[in-house]
Amino acid sequence: MSKLTSKLLALSLLFVGFISAQEVEPTKPEQTEFYKPVPPKVTPGEDGAPPSDAIVLFDGTSLDNWINTADSTAAKWTLNKDGSMTVKNRTGDIQTKQDFGSVQLHIEWKSPAEVQQEGQHRANSGVFLNGMYEVQVLDNNDNDTYVNGQVGSIYKQHVPLAMASVPTGQWNTYDIIYHAPEFEKGQKVKSGTLTVIHNGVLIQDHVEIKGTTPYIGWPKNPPHGKGPLRLQDHGDNSRVSYRNIWVRELD
């Protein structure tokens, strides 16, 4: 066999191998249809109620699902007759007894109608996913502050795409999609992400979580698994209230 023939044969075999490795274009509609796995049935909530597969963390009847972050004692925030709870000044952050990974979170909050302070001291609180990644809660109506710390920011990391707050003293909603970071052998191999919809307006669009959200310093990436949902007592008589808190686990 000549060298030329050998080369042609090798090229021919490569071409045949390439063709066999490719999917043949379907010629019938049923060839691109499949029937399993079947998605689970979820019944949407009516009139603001959570969907059927949600884990209800606060429905206004008790603080039984929450503990004090500092010492795991009973949560000391104020339970109100209107089905909400309010930060009780300097009693500390509270967090869920249950730990979560990736979740869809619905939470409603409001600042007090009576304005008393300015900047970061006006109705400051925060929603911490996995106990460490903060979505900022703040009354920014006619109240400017640093934009990576304003309402709806991923604190000190991502500026919101819009300021979508309702008037001071009215109820805001956050709908948050959180995908937890992944770790292998103590090192982060995949960043977490956050999507935030504030009163129906997209304000954080699948942004990368760079790490923890400290007041001072750079983000850190300690390895972790699931963690609690934490709500902040900022310690300056913020008087922020929360209601209708539920999650859907995405893990």
Score class of each variant (00 low, 15 high):
residue 2 S to H: 07
residue 4 L to Q: 07
residue 7 K to F: 14
residue 7 K to Y: 13
residue 8 L to F: 12
residue 10 A to M: 14
residue 12 S to A: 13
residue 13 L to V: 15
residue 18 F to K: 10
residue 22 Q to M: 15
residue 32 T to L: 13
residue 37 P to S: 03
residue 39 P to C: 04
residue 43 T to Q: 11
residue 50 P to S: 01
residue 53 D to C: 01
residue 59 D to Q: 05
residue 59 D to N: 10
residue 65 N to I: 00
residue 65 N to E: 02
residue 65 N to M: 01
residue 65 N to V: 00
residue 68 N to M: 00
residue 71 D to L: 04
residue 71 D to T: 07
residue 72 S to V: 05
residue 77 W to L: 02
residue 78 T to F: 00
residue 87 V to C: 01
residue 89 N to W: 01
residue 102 S to G: 10
residue 106 H to L: 05
residue 109 W to G: 09
residue 111 S to I: 08
residue 117 Q to K: 15
residue 120 Q to S: 13
residue 123 A to W: 07
residue 124 N to C: 06
residue 130 N to R: 08
residue 133 Y to R: 08
residue 135 V to A: 03
residue 136 Q to H: 06
residue 138 L to D: 03
residue 151 V to W: 12
residue 152 G to I: 11
residue 155 Y to V: 07
residue 167 P to H: 10
residue 169 G to Q: 08
residue 180 A to K: 10
residue 189 V to Q: 08
residue 200 G to I: 06
residue 201 V to W: 00
residue 217 G to C: 06
residue 218 W to Y: 14
residue 219 P to V: 13
residue 229 L to S: 04
residue 233 D to V: 02
residue 233 D to P: 01
residue 233 D to C: 01
residue 233 D to H: 01
residue 234 H to F: 05
residue 235 G to L: 04
residue 239 R to Q: 07
residue 248 R to I: 08
residue 251 D to H: 05
